[in-house]
Design a binder for these strands. Structure first.
Lengths: 338, 338
DNA sequence: CTGTTAGCGCTTTCAC
DNA sequence: GTGAAAGCGCTAACAG
């Protein structure tokens, strides 16, 4: 009970060597290859006393904590869950831990700087749309080697990782055009989010290219409710399109709900699909057609970039190359014949 | 560029005092009340040089990291998101940071012990059903002052926080009985999860008490798919009940999907409701009736208990007292007249 | 009220 | 191959 945690000295005593040698052996330090025998003795002793290096001491001495921070808008969004998963796995692969922060409470800018500036993390991955561009620029200026934007691109910040958002909506439009739709509407979140801007742009351009009439709706948010409200507006308009593209998965769910509450059949009277896929898609009515994006890889790439940065490498703007993929389910079909 | 982070000495130099005094003033140490004047000078100097205490140095010296660890089964479940939120907010309130771990990859038992034993966190909150009872007992034996079970109760582990699971299902049964149902079925996750056992027990007992015929189905999982499969089985049985109680929210969503694929009207031919509420409930077809549980508070209470423990207080088994609350939506109604 | 001092456990440079 | 010693930035016990 109440035992002190074993230290290097304890291991050294047990192995009959100096503690600095233990340190070198346990870390496979190139400068300290002990003889086969002592090495074995040290390893065994470490195991026997149950030695675990103290993270604080190590961090203090080496000024590297081997942990990364991830700032999320919250815990609930499916996309961010998936990004977080990618981040966690990749970090673990490199022996890094992960500190999660949300800005449920408090100023996000503070949260980030505090994490880095208190030396709690070696770098911070910022995956949140709720921080203003200006704040991010300031931040990146302050901590150029320890801030990476995830799923976000800001002018003046040179370390970021994003997906092919424009291609995602283009993919959606192509699918609908192939089904015969000639009039579609895109419902997007606020234009303050660069992801939304790119998705909208890809949407509009693809529509032009394929000679499809496209309209867009911009909502102040991008959750269930925003999708619901946005879709409602479109569905009640006089010139109702034959298909709806939702800018996010929750918006797609909301759009489906709106169609139902207006008694408009999906996909009979209107087709609906969303950017980003989720398990839930298979359990909705009808099963929701989506465009899948490599969100886990997004997280993984962000980790890679962060580690490159902290190691002194150059900042880059990464676009995860995997193309968006259409997952056809039951919410899209050819337009109704009139 | 490349600036060294300012230390206590930098502040001390700027203020013309000894660095230990700076330390005391900045921490409001009772032993070190400086004169109004020096105090002000120190505060200003700290602000000017942009001083932030180094977490590693502080941790090393005081052997308290001021961070808590939270082990989750994954990032996706809505319940765990909510618990995590509660944990984060409460931790922040006490000036604690939060390290998140999932066992997406690797042995969870390792993850936990490593976190604590490397001194990365002061205590670990374990909110995961995927670790075996035996492993948890071993863990709690090893680290009795730094492990708190969240949403889980295990014989032999005396620090845990759970909800009134039994009352949640009882609440569901009461609702259905009041609507006139006399034959209901509960679909639950594996009995290896104590939450499921309590929910099932509450379900059965309430049914007995209210003279309702109750059957139960145990599924090996508790996600959308499990709810879907479980409901399918019930819906296809010869003695179909008039109502379905899902043991988790995702199972409720799955059950709804199953009814639809079997062309059984909800709530017309069968009522469906789930334990645990979620935003999504309002956007399903039909809107899903749920029993809401105080999951955020669950997380908060877990933090409280963890802090009590690390401060030397006694371990307790906490049951969050807030009663489950029925949120009636469109998926429940009186049974069909035959 | 303020300064001095001794480490916390580790990494790292320099001896031997 | 291995040991000795310095010191990372901080807290805390003791002096004055």
């Amino acid at each position: 009970m109440g035992q002190r945690r074993p230290t290097l000295r304890d291991v050294a005593d047990a192995a009959g060597v100096h503690f600095s040698l233990v340190s070198r052996v346990l870390r496979d330090d190139p400068r300290g290859f002990a003889s086969k025998d002592t090495r074995a003795r040290i390893l065994r002793a470490a195991d026997e006393v149950g030695y675990r290096a103290d993270a604080s001491a190590r961090g203090l001495r080496s000024s590297r904590t081997m942990t990364l921070g991830l700032l999320l808008p919250g815990f609930s969004s499916p996309v961010y869950s998936s990004i977080a998963q990618g981040v966690e796995e990749q970090a673990k692969q490199h022996g890094y831990g992960l500190v999660l922060g949300t800005h449920a409470a408090g100023d996000p800018h503070e949260t980030i700087t505090d994490m880095v500036m208190h030396g709690r993390v070696d770098a911070m991955l910022v995956a949140s749309g709720q921080i203003e561009d200006a704040a991010l620029r300031r931040l990146a200026g302050q901590l150029p080697r320890s801030v990476v934007l995830v799923n976000r691109q800001v002018r003046g910040v040179s370390a970021s990782v994003v997906l092919r958002d424009g291609d995602a909506t283009a993919c959606a439009v192509e699918h609908l055009a192939a089904l015969g739709h000639r009039s579609i509407c895109g419902i997007f979140g606020p234009r303050t989010l660069d992801t939304m801007v790119r998705r909208e742009r890809g949407f509009v351009r693809a529509a032009q290219r394929l000679d499809v009439r496209a309209t867009t709706v911009e909502m102040p948010d991008r959750d269930y409710a925003a999708g619901y409200e946005g879709a409602l507006r479109v569905l009640r308009s006089t010139q109702r399109p034959t298909a709806l593209v939702a800018g996010t998965f929750p918006m797609g769910v909301g759009a489906l709900a709106a169609a139902r509450s207006e008694n408009i059949a999906v996909p009979g009277e209107i087709s609906v699909l969303s950017v980003h896929n989720d398990q839930l898609a298979d359990y909705l009515t009808p099963r929701l057609t989506t465009v899948s994006m490599p969100t886990k890889r997004l997280g993984a790439e962000a980790v890679e970039l962060a580690l490159v940065l902290t190691a002194g490498g150059a900042a880059r703007r990464v676009v995860v190359p995997d193309p968006p993929e259409l997952i056809a389910r039951d919410s899209t079909a050819g337009p109704a014949r009139i």
